[in-house]
Computed example of a mutant assay.
Amino acid sequence: MKKIIALLLILAAGESYAQEPVTSQLYKDVVALDKAIFDAYNKCDTESVKIYFSEDVEFYHDKGGVTLGAKALAEATKNNLCSRPGWKIRRELLPSSVKVYLMDNYGAIMTGEHLFYITENGKETLNGHALFTHLCRFKDGKWQVTRVLSYSHGPAK
């Protein structure tokens, strides 16, 4: 019985150290990057969105396919989400779902859930829910997203 308890304590300790605490600077930095990206995204400021992604970003979307490069990502956002008169999309992070993990000598991984709202004819409605994983790199004093997995898109829960 003592061996089982010791094993459970070791596993629990390992699990608690894997994820960054919400009070850590790494967690705060990565969440701030996410906020900056989606503040610009929600305003359809595609030029600002572009600076938060590496030039060689790979964006994998379960419904939209693959987009390669920051320029292509900004153009796709502009043409597909920001060009319809009287229609707007807004992404909202679910803060309680966010997990941040250190990637030694690179940056961090951020996972979480987000909701999407559509405004049409002046009325905003909750439209969808999805999961995401971002690989974030800290290089030359700044954070950028280098890889995105956006998946499990479906109705809002």
Score class of each variant (00 low, 15 high):
32 A>D: 13
142 K>I: 12
138 F>N: 15
42 N>K: 10
3 K>W: 07
155 P>W: 07
35 K>A: 13
74 A>R: 01
36 A>E: 11
56 D>R: 03
95 P>W: 04
85 P>D: 09
40 A>D: 09
87 W>P: 00
53 F>I: 05
62 D>P: 08
60 Y>C: 08
113 E>F: 10
4 I>W: 05
140 D>R: 04
22 V>G: 02
130 A>D: 14
127 N>D: 14
40 A>F: 01
2 K>P: 00
104 D>E: 15
39 D>A: 08
69 G>Y: 01
145 V>W: 01
61 H>W: 10
65 G>N: 08
74 A>V: 02
82 C>K: 06
27 Y>G: 07
105 N>E: 13
120 E>Y: 11
124 E>Q: 15
13 A>G: 09
35 K>M: 03
26 L>D: 05
126 L>W: 07
156 A>H: 12
55 E>W: 03
94 L>F: 03
146 T>Y: 05
136 C>T: 14
39 D>S: 10
116 F>M: 15
68 L>T: 14
36 A>G: 05
75 E>I: 03
98 V>A: 11
67 T>V: 15
23 T>K: 10
119 T>G: 09
69 G>Q: 02
138 F>T: 04
13 A>F: 10
110 M>D: 13
46 T>F: 01
41 Y>N: 14
8 L>V: 12
14 G>W: 06
115 L>C: 04
30 V>T: 08
109 I>C: 09
95 P>N: 07
110 M>Y: 00
10 I>M: 12
103 M>E: 13
134 H>C: 05
48 S>Y: 01
61 H>I: 10
88 K>D: 11
18 A>C: 10
89 I>A: 12
79 N>T: 07
51 I>F: 03
134 H>K: 13
43 K>G: 05
57 V>Q: 01
100 V>P: 06
31 V>K: 04
124 E>F: 02
127 N>L: 12
116 F>A: 15
133 T>Y: 02
94 L>R: 11
123 K>C: 00
74 A>T: 03
106 Y>P: 01
87 W>F: 14
39 D>K: 06
37 I>E: 08
99 K>G: 11
39 D>V: 07
63 K>P: 01
153 H>E: 14
123 K>G: 02
146 T>F: 01
91 R>T: 14
126 L>M: 13
77 T>C: 00
155 P>Y: 10
24 S>H: 06
42 N>W: 09
